[in-house]
Deep mutational scan, measured.
Amino acid sequence: MPVRRGHVAPQNTFLDTIIRKFEGQSRKFIIANARVENCAVIYCNDGFCELCGYSRAEVMQRPCTCDFLHGPRTQRRAAAQIAQALLGAEERKVEIAFYRKDGSCFLCLVDVVPVKNEDGAVIMFILNFEVVMEKDMVGSPAHDTNHRGPPTSWLAPGRAKTFRLKLPALLALTARESSVRSGGAGGAGAPGAVVVDVDLTPAAPSSESLALDEVTAMDNHVAGLGPAEERRALVGPGSPPRSAPGQLPSPRAHSLNPDASGSSCSLARTRSRESCASVRRASSADDIEAMRAGVLPPPPRHASTGAMHPLRSGLLNSTSDSDLVRYRTISKIPQITLNFVDLKGDPFLASPTSDREIIAPKIKERTHNVTEKVTQVLSLGADVLPEYKLQAPRIHRWTILHYSPFKAVWDWLILLLVIYTAVFTPYSAAFLLKETEEGPPATECGYACQPLAVVDLIVDIMFIVDILINFRTTYVNANEEVVSHPGRIAVHYFKGWFLIDMVAAIPFDLLI
Rank of each mutant, 00 (worst) to 15 (best):
L248V: 12
S55H: 07
S206D: 05
T65R: 06
L171W: 13
V94C: 14
V370G: 04
G184H: 05
N45C: 04
D197V: 01
R292D: 03
N317P: 06
G187A: 15
A40Y: 06
H147G: 05
P386N: 04
T174S: 14
N128R: 06
V59T: 01
S278I: 14
T375P: 05
A80T: 11
A156F: 15
R176D: 06
S275C: 12
I336G: 15
H368A: 14
L343T: 15
A307G: 12
P150A: 08
Y327E: 12
L311P: 07
S354W: 15
K93S: 13
S263N: 05
E95Y: 05
R326G: 12
V94E: 05
A83E: 09
T329E: 07
D323Q: 08
G71R: 01
S283K: 03
L248S: 11
L385N: 05
S263G: 11
T375I: 09
M291T: 10
S261K: 04
H221L: 10
P168R: 08
N369Y: 05
T337K: 14
L296V: 15
A193Y: 01
E214P: 06
A190D: 15
V180E: 05
K161M: 03
E91S: 07
G103C: 12
I126F: 07
N38L: 05
L316A: 11
T216Q: 05
S206G: 12
S209H: 15
A172K: 06
P298C: 13
L212K: 06
E23K: 01
P334Y: 01
I82G: 01
S239N: 14
R76F: 12
L69K: 01
A175T: 08
A188H: 12
L171V: 10
L212M: 05
L267F: 09
A34L: 01
R181F: 06
I19H: 01
H147F: 04
A175Y: 03
R100F: 01
A203R: 14
D144P: 14
D111Y: 06
L256D: 06
D144I: 12
H147I: 01
A223G: 08
A9W: 14
S284Q: 05
V194S: 06
A160L: 13
L51H: 01
A142P: 13
A185W: 03
T270V: 13
G149K: 12
G238R: 13
N12I: 05
H309P: 12
I333R: 15
A78D: 12
E23G: 06
R4T: 09
V41N: 01
A303Y: 13
L69T: 01
A253F: 13
L171A: 14
A97C: 11
Q376D: 03
C265N: 13
S320A: 11
L170E: 08
P240E: 12
T13D: 11
P114K: 05
L256S: 14
F125M: 05
P157C: 09
V370S: 01
Y54V: 01
R20W: 06
A169N: 15
E274S: 14
S182L: 05
L256N: 07
A203V: 06
D136Y: 05
R100L: 01
D136A: 06
I31F: 03
R92M: 13
A142W: 04
T367V: 09
P157Y: 01
I30D: 01
S140W: 14
A303I: 08
A204H: 01
R27P: 03
L167H: 15
L338F: 09
S284M: 09
P63K: 11
N38P: 14
V215K: 08
N38H: 15
H221F: 15
L338H: 15
E90R: 13
T13E: 09
A193R: 03
P298W: 04
A217W: 08
K28W: 01
P310S: 13
N117W: 06
K135V: 07
P202F: 01
F340S: 15
S275L: 05
G381A: 14
G187W: 11
F340L: 15
E274K: 04
D286A: 07
L155W: 15
G24M: 14
V112G: 01
T145M: 05
E214M: 05
G294P: 14
S243P: 06
S140D: 06
V122P: 12
S239M: 05
